[in-house]
Computed example of a mutant assay.
Amino acid sequence: MRILHVALGTSRKLGGPTTLLRGLLPVQRERGHEVTIVATDMGAETPADREVEGARARILPLVGPGRLCYGRGMRGVLREEVARADVVHLHGVYGLIIIEAMRAARRADVPYLVAPHGVWTPNHAPNNPALNSAWDRLLLVPLMKDAHRVVADSGRDAGYLRERGFERVTDMALGVDPALHLIDTPWPERRGVLFLSRVARKKRVDLAIEAYAGSRLWEQGHRLTVAGPIEPGLPYDPRELAARLGIAAHVDFVGAVEERERRELLARQRVFILASDDESFGIAVAEAASAGMAVVSSDRVVAMLDAEHDGAARTFPQDSAVLAKALRAAASDDGADAAATLRDYARARWTWEHAAQQIEEMVASPQTTSR
């Protein structure tokens, strides 16, 4: 099968969808598919930001305001690539490259899958609600109605999509780097609390820092590591917050990390924290759990809500005192059993092999049915 993926960009700075692409596409190639990706160079700074293993990549230079996501030569490239594809898989919904790809697929009568990636969950807060509403009504929804499938990141996300009137909705289990399944660091050898993601407004690094301060875990040898690029426009300085709380000497800000460094952090740290306002899935916590870390997350991270529903984890309200208590419990010597339970759950459930198989089933199923 010839699979065309279309995304806003491939830079790691763009978060979850680019992590998905880097995990899914090599597996699709291994399963015998020919994989191509078309995206803009939004946020790309290095050659690695413009490459995705397993796929032939056509990265288009941005033209005009970045929020419009219009790439130079976009229409011609999309017409050409859609014409040779058996299916088009679109990641995200707010960008002209996505709109044009849906139009091209519809004109060529090529089935297309649209993955909104949680933009319509109750806790999602768009920067410009009025503009988003107009975009939805005038451009997006009419094209999505003709999609072969609307792909949800979870069963919860699928429910919200159906509430918006979409009928052909299928949820797809996301996956993690399979190398994380090989990590077997003994619990006594693990040290530290880790935040590993974009330092963005919705990720609530401020709550993570406040919770760490309240936990006093540095007294037990557990430093806090904040790994990930700090997003421009963040309404606070996390370094200043750590200094104000008197814990600057116990917090390491290491910036963006590559895959090898990412695995090393997940292999040696003990507790992962994500107090996010909104995660339609939360690949970062799935990675941490798969690597054997304990996870403390807010009750707005869907991957952990699913694990909680299945009896493999707990989630917590966005309260720094509650999160501090949860950190202390998770980091304790007694926390090993709970971490192992979550690890086994994650390794059985969150795999790219499973995701690739689900996509094949979506394409093979008739458009007139829904699940």
Rank of each mutant, 00 (worst) to 15 (best):
R343K: 05
A200M: 11
A356G: 03
D278G: 01
A286M: 08
E279K: 01
Y345L: 13
P229I: 07
D86I: 13
A48C: 08
N123W: 03
R156D: 14
V199T: 11
E80P: 09
L323T: 04
A101W: 00
L274D: 09
I99W: 14
L96H: 09
G246V: 11
L113A: 01
L8K: 11
G15S: 09
L138F: 11
V150S: 00
E240M: 09
A108G: 05
P122F: 04
M42D: 15
V27G: 02
G175A: 04
G64Y: 08
I230W: 04
V141R: 15
T185V: 10
T40C: 13
A134R: 08
V251T: 00
P317Q: 06
L224H: 10
T369M: 15
A364H: 02
Q318A: 13
E53A: 14
A324I: 03
E261P: 09
V119P: 00
V295L: 09
A331C: 12
N128E: 06
P65C: 11
R2A: 08
F195P: 12
R162W: 11
E51P: 11
D344E: 15
H222T: 04
R190V: 08
R201C: 07
I97V: 13
V295W: 15
S298F: 06
A331N: 13
A125R: 15
G335K: 08
G92N: 03
A83G: 10
E30A: 15
F253V: 10
D333R: 13
R223Y: 06
S332P: 02
A267P: 02
E360F: 04
H91T: 03
W120G: 13
Q357G: 14
V301S: 05
R31G: 01
V151L: 03
I37K: 02
E100P: 07
A364I: 05
R84E: 04
A256N: 09
V251D: 01
F281A: 02
L194Y: 01
V88G: 00
P47I: 01
M362D: 00
A101H: 00
R244F: 02
H148P: 02
V193I: 11
V254H: 07
I59M: 04
R50F: 01
E100M: 12
G175Y: 05
E51V: 14
E259L: 14
G95Q: 05
G76R: 15
S11H: 10
A340N: 10
Y112W: 06
Q318M: 11
E360K: 01
E167G: 12
V82M: 06
A336V: 05
V199K: 08
L265E: 12
G95C: 02
A330D: 02
E30T: 08
E167C: 12
I98L: 12
A158E: 14
E163W: 04
R75H: 15
Y345E: 13
A346E: 06
V77R: 06
T40Y: 14
L96P: 01
R156Y: 14
E353Y: 01
D310L: 14
H354P: 00
I59A: 07
I183Y: 07
S290T: 04
M362S: 00
L25E: 05
R56P: 02
E231F: 03
W350V: 03
